[in-house]
Design a binder for these strands. Structure first.
Lengths: 179, 179
DNA sequence: AGTTATTTAGCACGATCGTTCGTGTGAACT
DNA sequence: AGTTCACACGAACGATCGTGCTAAATAACT
């Protein structure tokens, strides 16, 4: 079993060489363990996807770096099931509670990072001002999500390359001179 | 619990007013129940998404109908968790066995339907011959997947509309005269 | 009507899960 | 040295699950 619900205290305890009750005492409840898992995944995502992109000198470069870092963390199989939050979102989408809320918040922040990079790129003149940042971020995120999903299912890097082409094409279409 | 693994014979039996063992005898194993579920979902998907589009007189109209029917079945909440196969694919992606194989086959057939519609539209001159059908189908499928995921998570129809705009824009860019 | 299939129910099993409780153990502190 | 505190342990609980087994009921058929 996989996923946040399949993460069992019993199996995790065995994996780390602790007793079930000993590990349980550390978290207090399964929900707390799930929250800690999502929080840790969020930190890791910041570390390997978002933060390395924040040093980019311009908005358009930051936008490209965000997309590329995401695709690389997928094709490097940081998680066996692809992007942690894509899996988590699919699992938690119809549930209620703090675990879902936290996961949604992380995903929302990620999307906002992309929108902000688009707006900055517009302010710098690298993206046409007629582009709707929400719309453009949606389309870029769509390529990333599709690449993640198809790559994990097919174990074939082709979708990653298709996403790279789609992103390049879309950003080209959004540049003021070529748009 | 949700998903194909969360579908338990015990709860299903209670829901349909049968005994657990009585219902179990119908399928023989949980795996068979999951296979039957996927098969039924596939038939329903054919019925409400694919088949109504097959009557379209041209490839480009069929392509548009496939996308629109998919979006509509998402926003109509045919399933509470959005597209059945998007959820199933996310759940089964790292698993092995016939259930995964069947789900992947259905998703593969769906993507092939889109590719074929693109090729037909090219043959009819409605889509530029320089477009790679694989690439275009990937991008359209990406919009659909993203709309599904975001709609279910946010309970907000905005992503559906963003997908419609993205599809319209992408198909416009792919027309021979405007491309 | 009587025989034969087919379907359903009832019950029990072993496994796994989250959680609770009482206990021990070792470090930190007075 | 004696006390306190944080931590880990083992055992047990109730719940839920998939799965067999056996018998009762229902349907089909001659």
């Amino acid at each position: 079993m996989e996923g946040l619900d399949g993460l069992s205290i019993a199996r995790l305890a065995e994996a780390v060489g602790m007793s079930k009750s000993g590990l349980f005492a550390h978290f207090g409840s399964k929900e707390e363990l799930q929250l800690a898992t999502v929080a840790t995944a969020s930190e890791l995502f910041d570390e390997i996807v978002i933060n390395p992109a924040l040093g980019a000198p311009t908005g358009i470069e930051r936008l490209r770096a965000l997309c590329e870092n995401y695709l690389r963390h997928v094709e490097d199989s940081v998680y066996p099931g692809g992007c942690f939050f894509a899996s988590a979102a699919a699992e938690l989408d119809t549930r209620l509670g703090p675990v879902r809320d936290l996961a949604i918040e992380v995903v929302g922040d990620w999307l906002e990072q992309q929108r902000k990079a688009v707006r900055d790129a517009q302010a710098e003149g690298a993206i046409d001002p007629s582009e709707d940042p929400e719309q453009l971020a949606f389309e870029l995120e769509a390529y990333l999500m599709a690449a993640n999903q198809m790559f994990v299912i097919s174990q074939d890097p082709a979708p990653i390359e298709q996403a790279r082409r789609a992103i390049a094409r879309r950003l080209l279409a959004a540049t003021p001179t070529a748009g």
